[in-house]
Design a protein around this nucleic acid. Structure first.
Lengths: 289, 289
DNA sequence: TGATTTATGGATATTTTCTCCTTGATTATA
DNA sequence: TATAATCAAGGAGAAAATATCCATAAATCA
């Protein structure tokens, strides 16, 4: 018979079976029935397995595959396997439900994170971002401040800037931040991280630092917050709370993204960036098994 | 080690190859390279074909498949076929160029992060994730360990678990980790974070902790790494080989995602989770302007 | 350096796929 | 109704593919 057949990775084989079902012989229909009922088992079966399960001869199985347009049993199985991959659903509600199973939660959470990413991209202000990069590269010394969850982000930024070879110091103790800010000089850069933008322990030191002549960049989720008012450069991340709960989760994630963006741009602009990265990587190489 | 390996129709095999790439032998890497470069050809090839194309013996091809967790070449091909469905995206297409302007970099980086998210979703092993959640909730005390960049992630996890009301402690000093691990008891849970999975300062304490009867969860980018071998539960995130090519950035980002997933699931399963979150939020409310 | 482990591929065994051919059933035709 | 012609179906065994075993080479260790 003429080869009507599907090319791998194109049409839906299970559907195809239905469409030619009426043109199949009695025996071939048995095969078709089994395959449609148990596609997962079919994918793992051999010709002999399938012929037994369907109650037909092996030859009939092969003929069935040929009739569908495949070169043999092997190609047929490959195609059924591809049908089993769940394709991305177009419209999905990403709100996590109490009784969602684990993988559903994972999928929905991934989608939520994707949406957050897109939102933050919309919030990126090219001028402020460029300023931030230039100021970081120009600064005599960079002081990163943050408390609570943002304090940990401050450590992340410190880690990344240090690896790029910048002169940087991070603090997440309110008292030490206050003292540090009292000592900054012109040419220094303060990088304040605060999700709310209203944290006293950060707002006061930022005011102090500005008075002392330092430049101030802030990373926050709220544009109209005290800290954004005092800062010279504002990096904004999406602060929209996630449906389930934790704004904290979303915020941390978006802060990480923004730091990556910043680091990437810095690495592109700083000549010896790659060299610094390699040096730091080598320095811990012998700590591996 | 626990078999995390790929179940058909679940994880992304091409990605899995990248994640264990460093643990492959020279010959096996040849096979991996060919498969990653020509997945379409691979799906239609026989063992002999593939061994010739890759320039290795047939046996090495079979061994390669087994190493990935498949029963044989057949299952391996089936899984690669499934990967080829509807996945034209790759990080390569969004490679950042030297002369890209700032917003282009931002857009490309966002895309890269989206792809990373999807990739890590493919790597999520439901069984291990469920185990991780249950063990975290059941543990008398949770010890989070990490050094370097992963040490900062350890602080993040500590922050999130603490807010959920768990009994948790985090360490990122190699000596203190070693001492802490020497003192863990049955009923305790060690949560080890290591991108490479080969960091001595973590592998040794993990061994020690296991000897002392503690359960071990690890968060790593490499499935076939020492730490994954010793751990009872493995949480895998998408990893990239080259540290200079943004590997470190990607890792931090994906670790954050995985922690969010874990935290979300914990919050869903733990009765007084919301209450704990509210309590901790109120406790810092008066620190705002 | 010699000993021991690990990696590798060729020879070969085993399994699986596929072809050939016989048999039985059904339909068409005289 | 008998006979020819066509078609469906499966078993036997050939062909092809996969997997195992084992000898050898390479790497690592003591």
């Amino acid at each position: 018979m003429a080869r009507v057949g599907p090319k791998l990775n194109q049409s839906n084989t299970l559907l195809m079976i239905s469409s030619i079902y009426s043109s199949l012989t009695k025996t071939e229909k048995k095969v078709a029935d089994y395959v449609k009922s148990y596609p997962e088992e079919t994918v793992l079966a051999t010709v002999t397995d399938l012929s037994e399960k369907a109650g037909v001869g092996e030859t009939s199985v092969i003929r069935f595959c040929r009739k569908l347009g495949f070169r043999g049993f092997h190609e047929f199985k490959l195609s059924v396997a591809q049908d089993l991959v769940d394709r991305p659903q177009s419209v999905v509600d990403t709100a996590i439900d109490e009784q969602d199973d684990l993988m559903t939660v994972a999928r929905k959470l991934t989608m939520q994170h994707e949406i957050l990413l897109k939102n933050t991209l919309d919030l990126v202000n090219a001028d402020h971002l460029r300023m931030a990069v230039d100021k970081l590269l120009a600064a005599t010394k960079v002081y990163v401040y943050g408390v609570g969850s943002s304090g940990i982000t401050a450590l992340d930024l410190h880690y990344q800037l240090m690896r790029l070879g910048l002169n940087v110091e991070a603090h997440r103790d309110a008292h030490i931040i206050a003292m540090s800010a009292a000592l900054v000089k012109e040419g220094d850069l303060v990088f304040a991280i605060s999700t709310s933008g209203s944290t006293r322990d950060l707002v006061d030191p930022v005011k102090e630092a500005k008075k002392n002549g330092a430049d101030v960049i802030c990373l926050t989720g709220h544009l109209r917050s005290p800290i954004a008012t005092y800062a010279d450069t504002v990096l904004l991340v999406s602060s929209r709370e996630m449906p389930t709960e934790g704004g904290a989760l979303a915020t941390k994630f978006m802060q990480t993204y923004m730091l990556n963006l910043l680091t990437t741009l810095l690495a592109m602009k700083k000549e010896d960036a790659i060299e610094s990265l390699e040096k730091t990587a080598r320095s811990v190489a012998d700590k591996l098994y």
